[in-house]
């Protein structure tokens, strides 16, 4: 039987939720994702930083409606990693 290969960067609940949201869209606003996963700004920022450091997430800022908005998107590496992560989870869930 193949040994489990779980991506530790993605596997924390907060980060996997962020990846799950971003996987279905081109970009999502920081505040929208934060509200969807119900965490504080600081916790969200930590998760975003870890994903960004791993090269899985890219950040852009845009001024809209007179205020600065932060947009998040999965990089190509991030999409590949998340797809592989979900495939591994599905395989493991099938075994258990």
């Amino acid at each position: 039987m193949k040994a489990p290969v779980i991506d530790a960067v993605i596997h924390a609940p907060g980060r996997l939720q962020i990846c799950a949201i971003l996987a279905d869209v081109d970009q999502a606003e920081f505040a929208t994702v934060r509200d969807a996963i119900a965490v504080s700004d600081s916790v969200m920022s930590k998760h975003v930083k870890q994903l960004e450091d791993a090269g899985y997430l890219a950040i852009s800022k845009a001024a809209r409606g007179g205020r600065q908005r932060t947009w998040l998107k999965l990089t190509a590496d991030g999409r590949r990693a998340f797809k592989a992560y979900v495939a591994e989870l599905t395989r493991l869930a099938g075994i258990v």
Binding site: P13, D24, I37
Partner: peptide, 15 residues
């Protein structure tokens, strides 16, 4: 794995 898949499902529901 089951909990993680469930979390993914719930997160996708927001989109």
């Amino acid at each position: 794995p089951a909990e993680a898949l469930d979390l993914i499902r719930k997160s996708r529901n927001a989109v």
